[in-house]
């Protein structure tokens, strides 16, 4: 993947496939340049056995093919930037009230092999356009401030009849996030 934001889009699509109603995408950059990405969902989760196999493309069998190369590609991006990837998952069978998956990856942004974050706003727009019924919380914290989007707040204003996937709404979301990123750069 050319941009980390494309990995984020790809991994979040797994949350969609897992039937998530809420997806949280958290990015945290500290003063030392360590970036922590966390994608959390309340989907159907995975068994401990599946968690073990999804990180290794060579262990992936046809039955787990739905997960495919997404996780291995993120793991690669993380490890080549001196980071690591961890997955925590509770399957619906194990605990229907607390099921879901958290994929966490760290990166040293100073590393020469760090994949640039790229256009994370573009990825969020694609996610919301494709699945406007899901609630997304996006939070990007940096030493100079934060950018955030909570679709629950938007839904309160829009009510049930206007979908988050309407072009005008997507444009508002894009504008809102771009303004927040502009403010961070100052």
């Amino acid at each position: 993947m050319k941009e980390l934001s494309l990995n984020i889009l790809d991994i979040a699509q797994n949350s969609v496939s897992a039937g998530a109603k809420n997806i949280r995408i958290l990015l945290d950059e500290d003063a030392q340049g360590i970036l922590t990405l966390s994608i959390e969902d309340d989907g159907k989760g995975m068994s401990p056995e599946m968690v073990r196999t999804v990180t290794d493309p060579f262990c992936t069998t046809r039955t787990t093919r739905k997960v495919g190369m997404g996780i291995p590609l993120l793991k690669l991006a993380s490890e080549q930037a001196n980071g690591s990837l961890t997955i925590h998952s509770v399957s619906r069978e194990a605990d229907p009230d607390r099921c879901g998956t958290t994929v966490k990856a760290t990166f040293d942004t100073n590393s020469i092999d760090f994949t640039p974050l790229g256009d994370v706003v573009d990825s969020l727009i694609v996610l919301i356009q494709g699945h406007p019924e899901i609630d997304y919380l996006f939070l990007h914290t940096t030493p100079s401030g934060e950018a955030r989007l909570d679709t629950k707040e938007l839904r309160e204003v829009l009510g049930e009849e206007i979908s988050l996937g309407e072009f005008e709404i997507l444009e508002w979301i894009r504008g809102s996030l771009e303004e927040q990123y502009q403010a961070l750069k100052k």
Binding site: L9, D10, M69, L73, F167
Partner: peptide, 20 residues
Amino acid sequence: GMATCGIAAGARPVLNTIVE
């Protein structure tokens, strides 16, 4: 198409352009 293969090949700008 918006799976890993599509995303890696450049489907994100294609989708956003079409929507716009």
